[in-house]
């Protein structure tokens, strides 16, 4: 259909000899074919594309080094100001009650502690960590509400090095996380599930 042909021409530019520009570009680093050596359209386009390729490469190399082509500090500051103001602390776990009130640890601080503990084992990169308690059912947890510290269950996702023994490392990891959290917060976790989701070095 004529309309489709026109649209095709519009979308995929061709040289005077009928060849698609994209095809020519794909073989720009190969030696010219017999047709390209004899066809003036191809010869001219090849030279022009070759030149464009070298200037493009120069731009690709020069731009990231150019201090004038970096966003100013105000950009990072503005983004981080919003990010810090919107830190999702999640629920809170009461650790101890004193005469001055209750000392809580936020879900966010607890998961950070768990990731820290996991990261002390060689070959383990701790990723996402979720905390659940058996009592909450299917209800979505509400930020700021208190959780039952006697029934904390975690699921920790990790990426591991391809060289480690996964079963032995998982035993050590479960023990390390449990010990560090117990020592730092006095929370004894009811369940520690670990999911190996990736090998980070392959």
């Amino acid at each position: 259909m004529a309309l489709n042909d026109d649209r095709f021409q519009e979308e995929r530019p061709r040289l005077g000899c009928g060849r698609e520009l994209d095809d020519l570009w794909a073989s720009i680093d190969d030696p010219p074919t017999a047709h390209e050596q004899s066809c003036p359209d191809c010869r001219h386009a090849r030279a022009a594309l070759h030149h464009l390729a070298s200037v493009t490469e120069a731009m690709r190399d020069a731009d990231p080094q150019d201090p004038g082509l970096q966003p100013g500090d105000r950009v990072r500051n503005a983004i981080m100001m919003v990010a810090r103001a919107e830190v999702r602390r999640g629920r809170r776990a009461p650790l101890r009650t004193t005469t001055l009130g209750t000392i809580d640890i936020s879900e966010q601080a607890l998961t950070a502690l768990i990731r820290f503990a996991a990261g002390t084992l060689p070959g383990v990169h701790a990723r996402r960590c979720t905390i659940s308690t058996s009592g909450e059912g299917r209800r979505r947890p509400i930020a700021g509400e208190a959780v039952d510290v006697g029934d904390i269950r975690i699921t920790l996702k990790v990426a591991v090095a391809s060289s480690i023994s996964i079963p032995a490392t998982m035993v050590a990891l479960r023990e390390r996380v449990g010990t560090v959290v117990q020592a730092q917060t006095s929370i004894t976790m009811a369940q520690i599930d670990i999911v190996v989701e990736d090998l980070y070095d392959v």
Partner: peptide, 12 residues
């Protein structure tokens, strides 16, 4: 009050 220290500081 929520404890918000970073784990590295809180857990030498």
């Amino acid at each position: 009050m929520a404890r918000t220290e970073s784990p590295a500081e809180a857990a030498p």
